[in-house]
C-alpha cells in the first residue's frame, strides 16, 4: 500500500514535469515569431537567417526616412485614437444598457452588439467597402474609423461590462435619491466607477485598431495604415523593413495593452481596514 502511494506521488511529479515541459514547448512556438522578428530587425543581412550578421539600425533608418511609412503612421494613429473613443463610447452604452435595463428583445440586442468579432475580417471588409461605395463615402479616413469601431466596440463592451458587474446596483439609485438627475448620476457615479475599465477599453481598442489589416486594406483607399503597408511589403520581396516596422508596432501595442492591464488589475488597490 505504502509503495503504491509512493509510486503514485512520484508519477504525479513526473506528469507535472512533463506537462510543464510541454507548456514551455508551446510557449516557445508561440513566441518564436515575435522574438525572431525583433532580433532580425537589428540584423544586417538582407535575407534574415542564421548565422546572424552584425548589429544594425539600418532598417529603422530606412523606415524613418520613408515618407510613406510616416504618412501611414499618422493615419494609423488618427484612426486608432478616433476608433478607440468611438468604440469605447458605443461599448459603454451597450454595457450600461445590459447592466441597467431589462427589456423585450434584450438578447437580440446583445447578439447584434457582440456579433462583429465572429464574422471573418475578410467578409466584413468586403461588405464594408461595398456598402461605403454604395453610400458614396468610400476611401475616406473615417470610413476606416467606422469599420474599426464596429469591430472594436464589442471588446470595449466586454471590459466595461465586467467592471459594472462589480458596482452595487444601489449606487446609482442612491445618487438619484440624494438629488442627482440621471445625467448627474451618470457623470458623478457611473463614469468615475468605471473609469479604470474605460481607460482599459480605450487602450485595448486602440491596440486592436492599430494592428488590424484586412478591413483597413479594403476600406482605406489611399489612406494606408501601417498594417496595410506591411501587407504590401509582404507581397513584394523579402524585406527586413517589416521586422523594424513590426517591432515598432509591437512596442506600441504592448505598451497600450500593459497600460490597459494595469488599469484593469489595479483598479481597486486593497486598502488596509482601519481599526
Amino acid at each position: 500500500m505504502n509503495l503504491i502511494m509512493h509510486l503514485r506521488i512520484n508519477a504525479d511529479r513526473v506528469i507535472r514535469l512533463l506537462l510543464l515541459g510541454y507548456l514551455a514547448l508551446v510557449f516557445f512556438f508561440i513566441f518564436t515569431p515575435i522574438v525572431t522578428s525583433i532580433i532580425f530587425s537589428f540584423n544586417s543581412e538582407r535575407f534574415p537567417t542564421i548565422p546572424l550578421g552584425s548589429f544594425t539600425w539600418k532598417w529603422y533608418q530606412t523606415i524613418y526616412a520613408d515618407a510613406d511609412v510616416w504618412e501611414a503612421a499618422k493615419t494609423s494613429i488618427v484612426v486608432a485614437i478616433s476608433t478607440s473613443i468611438l468604440a469605447t463610447l458605443i461599448g459603454f452604452c451597450t454595457a450600461y444598457t445590459d447592466f441597467r435595463y431589462q427589456f423585450r428583445g434584450k438578447n437580440s440586442y446583445l447578439v447584434l452588439a457582440l456579433l462583429p468579432p465572429t464574422i471573418p475580417l475578410i467578409i466584413l471588409a468586403l461588405a464594408m467597402l461595398a456598402w461605403f461605395s454604395r453610400l458614396g463615402i468610400s476611401g475616406k479616413i473615417w470610413t476606416i474609423v467606422i469599420a474599426h469601431t464596429v469591430l472594436c466596440a464589442p471588446f470595449a463592451m466586454a471590459v466595461i461590462r465586467l467592471r459594472l458587474q462589480q458596482m452595487d446596483p444601489d449606487l446609482e439609485s442612491a445618487a438619484w435619491n440624494l438629488g442627482a438627475s440621471e445625467w448627474a448620476a451618470m457623470r458623478n457615479i457611473v463614469v468615475p466607477f468605471t473609469k479604470s475599465a474605460i481607460i482599459s477599453a480605450l487602450c485595448l481598442t486602440m491596440a486592436v485598431s492599430f494592428d488590424e489589416f484586412a478591413v483597413a486594406w479594403f476600406v482605406s483607399g489611399l489612406n494606408k495604415t501601417i498594417p496595410v503597408i506591411i501587407l504590401e511589403i509582404l507581397q513584394g520581396n523579402i524585406d527586413p523593413q517589416i521586422n523594424a516596422i513590426g517591432t515598432f508596432v509591437f512596442v506600441t501595442s504592448i505598451t497600450l495593452v500593459i497600460i490597459a492591464q494595469l488599469f484593469f488589475i489595479l483598479r481597486s488597490p486593497k486598502q488596509p481596514t482601519h481599526v
Binding site: S37, F40, A207, S253, V257
Partner: peptide, 15 residues
Amino acid sequence: PFFTSYLVRTFSWYV
C-alpha cells in the same frame, strides 16, 4: 500575441 501584428509573425515564420 493578440496585439502583435499577425502579419509580422507570419513573415517571421516565412523567414
